[in-house]
């Protein structure tokens, strides 16, 4: 929330503050069976100028909250971190800068200690990663070192038992991966599109791609539709469904969709004409049981508004976390 971290029990109305204000938190994962949080944030040990907002592929630090409800303190447990993802059995998989043009992977246990560092280097800078539901494989989006940050994006698989990686696909020269690719039993799914152009500054439309596990040729994700404009996606905990935030066509409002990867049926689970759903990959999350999806949204409002209630009673005017029940895949 606004760069700091709170948690809210689902059966209570209060928020519990986890960090001091202005922490710059960008991504949060539960660790230690829900007793603590791992927070990916700008490195606060850097100078303020260096600790400005950063994009994927830029190194950051991981902080771990201390146990205890009254504590607002955090411990730095990793620096030079490019990306992190929770492991199904606890702990984290992290990608760190290893050199000018390579990355390294490591696992952390629930206490924040590095439990294994993979010696096999990963080519390029990891911009996003996720772990398969069985915890055996990681899928990475990487960016090769290029001039003026223009390196080419690729999708890599990483065997977490053997510690070896293999290249699944290279993206076209002018395309970038948005967020972390998702490993499922039906292939690797990711959102990609043309990178922003300096002249227009506008983001081009992004599409959902599927990479079959047995070939390196990405294609449009079945069932999504060629007019679909994707923003972010996240695989369900069992890897059988994808939550996708996007627009059915360029003129549609942004909604949350669920793609059943077995039937390739895309189902809209929200219907919003007047709500703006945040499209960052970190603003989309599944519940552990796969029955709910959390998104962040607020009303599409412009200009000044006057209300006859206190600000704390206003909902649509401010970003809130919404719980969207989506049932089970059956």
């Amino acid at each position: 929330m606004d760069g700091y971290v709170v948690d809210k029990p689902t059966d209570a109305s209060y928020l519990r503050r986890r960090t001091t204000r202005d922490f710059g938190a960008q991504e949060i994962e539960w660790v230690s069976s829900g007793d603590a949080l791992a927070i990916l944030s700008a490195d606060l040990s850097e100078t303020p100028a260096a600790a400005s907002p950063v994009a994927d592929g830029t190194s950051r630090a991981i902080y771990r909250t201390r146990p205890g409800e009254e504590s607002l303190s955090v411990d730095e447990i990793s620096t030079g971190t490019l990306a992190m993802s929770p492991l199904p059995d606890g702990g984290l998989l992290i990608a760190r800068e290893e050199g000018a043009s390579t990355s390294e992977l490591a696992t952390m246990d629930d206490s924040g200690q590095v439990s294994r560092t993979y010696l096999h280097p990963v080519e390029g800078k990891v911009s996003g990663l996720s772990v398969s539901p069985d915890g055996n494989t990681a899928v990475l989006a990487t960016r090769a070192e290029g001039t003026e940050g223009s390196g080419r994006f690729g999708i890599l698989g990483f065997d977490l038992s053997e510690g070896t990686s293999w290249r699944i696909a290279d993206l076209p020269e002018d395309e970038e991966v948005f967020g972390a690719p998702q490993w499922t039993g039906h292939g690797v799914f990711y959102v990609a599109g043309e990178a922003k152009t300096a002249e227009s500054g506008a983001a081009a439309s992004y599409d959902v791609y599927r990479l079959p596990l047995d070939s390196g040729k990405p294609g449009p994700a079945p069932g999504v539709g060629e007019d679909f404009v994707a923003s972010s996606l996240h695989a369900s905990p069992d890897g059988e469904r994808l939550a996708i935030v996007g627009r059915r066509n360029p003129n549609s409002p942004t909604d949350l969709y669920v793609l059943d990867l077995t039937t390739n049926v895309l189902q809209a689970v929200t219907a919003n004409e007047n709500m703006e759903i945040k499209t960052s990959p970190n603003d989309l999350a599944w519940s552990a049981d796969g029955d709910h999806i959390a998104i962040v949204a607020r009303g599409i409002l412009s200009g000044s508004r006057v209300y006859q209630v206190r600000a704390e009673a206003l909902l649509a005017d401010f970003y809130n976390v919404y719980d969207v029940p989506v049932g089970d895949s059956g």
Partner: peptide, 26 residues
Amino acid sequence: TPPERSLAPSNPNGDPDPSLDLDLEE
């Protein structure tokens, strides 16, 4: 399939006290 859900929260309904009014020229 489950129906699509609208996220839009209901507009807040203030319960103004008619005894005291604040008139703000928007």
